[in-house]
Design a protein around this nucleic acid. Sequence first.
DNA 1: CCAAATCTGATGTACGTAAATCAAAAAATA
DNA 2: TATTTTTTGATTTACGTACATCAGATTTGG
Lengths: 341, 341
Amino acid sequence: MRPTVHDIAAAAGVSLATVDRVLNQRPGVRHVTREKVEAAIRDLGYVRDVAAANLAKSRVYPLTFILPASDNSFMHGLNAEIRAAMARSAAERTDIRIVEVPAFDPQALVRELETVATEKPSGVALVATDAPDVRAAVDRLVKDGIPVVTLVSDLTGSLRHHYAGVDNIAAGRTAARLLGRFLGGAQGEIAILAGSMLVRDHRERLEGFTAVMAQEFPALHLLSVLEGRDDPEVAHMLIADALGKNDGIIGIYSLGAGNRGLVRALKEKAVDRTLTVIAHELTVHTRAALLDGTIDAILNQDAGHEVRSAIRVLKAKADGLAVIDAQERIRLDIFLKDNLP
Amino acid sequence: MRPTVHDIAAAAGVSLATVDRVLNQRPGVRHVTREKVEAAIRDLGYVRDVAAANLAKSRVYPLTFILPASDNSFMHGLNAEIRAAMARSAAERTDIRIVEVPAFDPQALVRELETVATEKPSGVALVATDAPDVRAAVDRLVKDGIPVVTLVSDLTGSLRHHYAGVDNIAAGRTAARLLGRFLGGAQGEIAILAGSMLVRDHRERLEGFTAVMAQEFPALHLLSVLEGRDDPEVAHMLIADALGKNDGIIGIYSLGAGNRGLVRALKEKAVDRTLTVIAHELTVHTRAALLDGTIDAILNQDAGHEVRSAIRVLKAKADGLAVIDAQERIRLDIFLKDNLP
DNA sequence: CCAAATCTGATGTACGTAAATCAAAAAATA
DNA sequence: TATTTTTTGATTTACGTACATCAGATTTGG
């Protein structure tokens, strides 16, 4: 049997109340006594029974998720996964709130972070917009003792406790190698469709992609980046235009959202030519395109895993517990038509 | 606030004791009364607080893991992950026991399953050897009310509650497509190195691989399967021999273990030729080979995920709770040198 | 050395459920 | 109707921890 507070009290030769004061960092314990208790805790290998503690505290974890109000499949999926987690709130003792802020608007995000700070939740998860003010606001939250996890897009250089998302540089590099290898030794042009260079994850994907391309596949020439603003219509226009003007294009890397437009353009303009296409995020549209051969590979991040991981980490941090790192690593999924879930 | 047993009792107009009898399926409740209580449970949306219940029961989940006594990196890794889970036993209320049985020996496995049945654990996880007797033994366990999860290798057609492992047919198909695409339109021979055709997961990988190869890459000719018994020495010998005799080989698919031998053979015999190589399972050896370019892609199943998933599922089944399917799907990881963890 | 301040112990209640006991009520049987 | 059997209620203890209160002990400062 694992030791309880009673065992600690007996071993340290103090009362239960004193053990409790030490464990919960309440005042009124002399230094020497505190050390006696801590020694007993170490010796017996006591670990607080979190379930019992939470029961006694009737603890719930109020968690706030701050998301950009973007109207694309990925954000909708993320939203749905958070709602699914809300449905499990009772069992998980969470009380989850979703807040939407205008996308790509650092100031709005900062204001929201400040509002959230006054509510003192057990934890905050946010899709970070990369700006110094946001960093500062996050750091303030952390210094107030509130666990913070970045979701999907990281905020490097800030004090956030954890990042629940994929390594986007690695994603870009992987896309480059897949595209390069799939194209064999062929020579030609590569079109790149991004959402916006203002978002960190897209910038990082591009960075990784161009690095590997330059180093390992010099026969492939990268065209300048098309910014589709994650909008299917814009994406369609840009790709249709590019394919019409340039028949040297033999490959496409779509690193953002709005792939419905990309797929439509491909079906209209590229039936007669062989294009190799790599895209991000598995949606109904990209899935269908992968199956019918329009897209050759999809790189994906599992929003469900990201949300569940963020919640686990926030709860653990709120309790000062360790997390299983391997479990919380969000993996880059590579889907070919053969290994779709 | 979520409803408690007290609320149910009040709503159903019965006493706490009766609610308890209904909840824990104890005898001594008239049919009509039982239905009144169940109605109240539904109406109020009561869900038992598992943490409190476990606390009251001082419940632990005795779990038994049955593994083949195989001496390869993957099984060692699996073993290590189970031990890591044992280290978390206190917090997770588990009491995990590992039993090793001779590999590829259905009778030994059946005997062990029968022994385990007498111990009435809360759950059993096993790496299944595919045989009718084993299926029957598993079915008996299930009928005794003991949750059973197959690990790594499934036992289709049995009553096991869940399979914690990858889809090996999909894995084989994916390997085929990667190899085919990486080879461009080239023509040549493909060597296949397996552990043994007696193991279901290897058979399934081969099945998926040959299917896609035949259908989509007719220019590639598959050589007959080499069985390396998951042994590095045997694998080395077989591959070195094949490469020496046949210089039409342009690709290799290694779908089992013992890749240390494969890598050594490649470094000795294939420095001057360009081979495309796909292997399974990320280990120190395959990892190094991927980084230095000897191997082009690694397909992997995350043993840690499999073990944690098996434990979660067994606990949930023991409590009659639902599992999050998406969370328990074990994914096929595809590693290129760019997205290694 | 006494008063004040600080520390410690003893005790009780609570969290939500499990499980047991005994008494009382209701139903079934004779 | 009397008796037995079955069903239900009331109550208590327990799980391991949190938290509050009050009394008693010990340590400080003057």
